[in-house]
Simulated assay, not measured.
Amino acid sequence: MTSTPATSFTHDQIRTYQAQPNSLADKIILVTGAGSGIGRVAALTYAQHGATVLLLGKTTSKLEEVYDEIEALGGPQPAILPLNLASASYTEMQQLENLISKEFGRLDGILHNAGILGELTPLEMYDIDTFAKVMQVNFTAVFMLTQALLPLVKAATSGSVVFTSSTVGTHPRAFWGAYALSKQGVEGMSDIFTQETQATTTLRFNCINPGGTRTNMRAHAFPGENPMSLKTPEDIMPGYLFFMSDDSIGVRGQVVALQPK
Rank of each mutant, 00 (worst) to 15 (best):
G33S: 06
F9P: 04
T4M: 07
F139Y: 14
A132T: 11
Q94K: 12
P122H: 06
H112P: 03
G159M: 06
R204A: 06
T201A: 14
A42E: 07
E196W: 02
V66N: 03
H112W: 02
L24E: 02
N226R: 09
C207M: 10
N113A: 03
T197F: 09
S229F: 08
Y179C: 04
V137P: 07
I110E: 02
G239W: 02
M135V: 11
L181D: 02
T4H: 02
S248F: 04
G74C: 08
Y67A: 00
T59P: 09
T157H: 14
F175A: 08
Y67C: 01
S3N: 09
E92V: 00
I100T: 03
F131A: 05
A219F: 10
Q254E: 15
T146S: 10
N22K: 06
T200I: 12
L258F: 07
G39Q: 03
P223K: 00
L96S: 09
T7Y: 14
A42F: 04
T121Q: 08
A221T: 12
P227G: 11
K62M: 08
S190R: 01
Y46S: 02
F243G: 02
Y179G: 07
V53W: 03
V137G: 05
K27Q: 10
L230T: 09
Q198A: 14
T10C: 04
I128K: 12
T16F: 08
K183Q: 08
L99R: 13
F243R: 01
L120V: 14
S8L: 08
I14H: 02
A6D: 03
A156C: 08
L54N: 04
K183Y: 06
L44G: 06
T164R: 02
G211M: 00
S166N: 11
F175Q: 10
M135Y: 08
D26N: 13
Q95Y: 11
V142L: 12
I28V: 15
Q94H: 09
T60M: 13
T200P: 07
P172K: 00
